[in-house]
Simulated assay, not measured.
Amino acid sequence: MSPTDRPDLSDFDQASPELRHAGAVVDQAIEYMLKEKIDPISVASALLGGALGMLSMNLDRDEVLAVLDQARASVSSGEMESISQPPAQGHA
């Protein structure tokens, strides 16, 4: 993959300070778990489970499904494959 294939990550700079902070905390948690030699699939599964729990506590079922449909579309389109490193300031 060439650098021109990479997605435009400039939107991450536009994320709210709260979202950027939450993303940075998640990035640190991931870094910590990987340093503790926790399997990356276990890390991802735990994060996904936690995210689904948070979504379910704050959105109704159809809204959670819409978020999952959007995530599925991102994976299907190949968008996720083109992002090899999260932005330094956290995920958005």
Rank of each mutant, 00 (worst) to 15 (best):
M80S: 11
Q85E: 15
K37I: 04
Q14G: 10
S2W: 00
L52S: 08
P17E: 15
M57I: 01
D60W: 03
K35I: 00
G90P: 11
S77K: 07
V67K: 13
L68P: 09
P3I: 01
V26I: 14
S16N: 04
L9P: 05
L68C: 13
R61H: 10
M57Q: 09
G53A: 04
G49I: 02
S84R: 15
L19P: 02
A88P: 12
E63I: 01
E36M: 10
Q89W: 00
V43Q: 04
M1I: 06
L68S: 04
S42P: 03
S82D: 13
V26S: 14
A15C: 12
D62F: 00
A51L: 04
S2N: 10
Q14K: 15
G78T: 11
H91G: 11
G90K: 06
A15E: 12
A66R: 09
Y32H: 12
A51F: 06
L48Q: 13
Q14H: 14
E18T: 07
Q14P: 09
D11W: 09
P87V: 04
S76V: 04
P3S: 02
H21G: 12
D39R: 05
A92G: 14
A92S: 14
A44Y: 03
D13F: 03
A66H: 05
D69Q: 10
L48R: 15
A88V: 05
E79Y: 13
V25Q: 12
Y32Q: 10
D5W: 02
N58M: 06
M54Q: 15
R61S: 13
H91R: 15
E31Y: 13
G90F: 05
Q28D: 08
D60E: 15
E31M: 08
G23F: 00
P86V: 03
Q70N: 12
E63F: 00
I83N: 03
A73C: 01
A51C: 09
K37Y: 06
E18L: 02
D39F: 00
R61E: 14
R20L: 08
L52I: 07
L9H: 06
S76Q: 11
N58I: 00
R6I: 00
E79K: 11
D62H: 11
D27R: 14
R61W: 08
I30V: 13
S82C: 10
S76H: 10
D13M: 11
I41P: 03
L55H: 09
M33K: 15
E31N: 15
D11N: 13
Y32K: 12
M54T: 15
V26C: 13
V43D: 01
G78R: 08
P17W: 08
L47Y: 03
